[in-house]
Computed example of a mutant assay.
Amino acid sequence: MKRLIPYGLIVVGSFIYSVGLNAFISANQLAEGGFVGISLVLFYKLHILTGLSYFVFNIPVLYLGWRFFGREFIAKTFVGVVAVSLFTVFTVGFAQHVGDRLLAALYGGVICGAGLGLIFRSGGTTGGVDILARIARHYFGFSMGRLLFSSDVVVIAIVALILGKEIAMYSLVALFVSSRVIDYVIEGVSSSHAAMVISEKNAEIADRIHRDLGRGTTFLRGRGGYTGSDKDVLYCVVSRDEIVRLQKAVALEDEDAFVVVHEVHDVLGEGFSR
């Protein structure tokens, strides 16, 4: 039963994505990247259903994915492609004609990003260029991120030539918002902070963190690049609202301590997400 949960989430994510696509992107003559963007252009110019052309484009790509990566890899992608194709056809009536294309791009980007984030978090994809990029990375060593970005640039350039520069610009806004929402869904909105402390009083600092913040600490072995001497590096993860208290705790024990703080996502364990 647990093995079916990711497939159910992929279907739910596909529905959310299709609603955003039809309600705001397609209804307001905007576009997307990848195969969806090409399908939208065909819909605007030739009135071919977006879901139908999208599914047809993905047939050879799904076959390549199955040949190169096997049945297990392609299973979730197949569910995502079929679900998006069907829901995109069935949710055409959800269209919301917004007077401001910028608002349509923002709304569409948020909803589409939420759907795609749920699909990706469940281990699925929506096929298309993603599979081609995986093949290129696996066999030719190309950067997957650059290939995906390049494909979006090419599609948006086509949109600019066929539909106009204004629509292309608003479509870029929708793509940017969608990418940020995808990151939030996958990595989590409530990010935490990790701190690395280098001090001669790390033991005292750790004790104060335990007492004042109730957080655990870890000592890592390090070596000074200039002095060549071995020393402990204190590592601690705290929530966003505790970072100032952590800095104060360090300063109370050693004002000259060297502290590096950076954001971390999906922190699992005691005191954080399970």
Rank of each mutant, 00 (worst) to 15 (best):
L9P: 00
V12P: 00
F15Q: 02
L30W: 11
F35H: 10
V36G: 04
V36T: 15
S39A: 15
F43H: 15
L46M: 14
I48E: 08
T50V: 15
L52A: 14
Y54H: 13
F55T: 12
N58F: 13
I59M: 13
P60Y: 15
L64D: 06
R67H: 14
E72M: 02
F73M: 10
F73V: 10
T77P: 04
F78L: 14
F78D: 01
V81L: 07
V81S: 08
V81Q: 10
V82D: 06
S85C: 08
F87N: 08
T91A: 05
V98D: 04
G99W: 14
R101G: 01
L102Q: 06
A105S: 12
C112P: 04
F120P: 00
S122H: 00
G123E: 00
G124H: 01
G128Y: 14
I131L: 10
Y139H: 15
G141C: 07
S143I: 11
S143A: 08
S143E: 10
F149M: 12
V153P: 00
V159I: 03
I162M: 03
I167F: 07
A168Y: 01
M169G: 02
V177P: 04
S179K: 09
S179C: 04
Y184K: 10
V185R: 03
E187Y: 15
E187L: 14
S191L: 05
V197H: 08
K201M: 01
N202E: 14
N202K: 04
A203K: 12
R208L: 14
R211D: 10
L213G: 10
R221C: 02
G222A: 14
Y226N: 05
D232Y: 11
V233Q: 01
I243Y: 08
L252C: 11
E253S: 09
V259E: 07
H265I: 04
L268F: 15
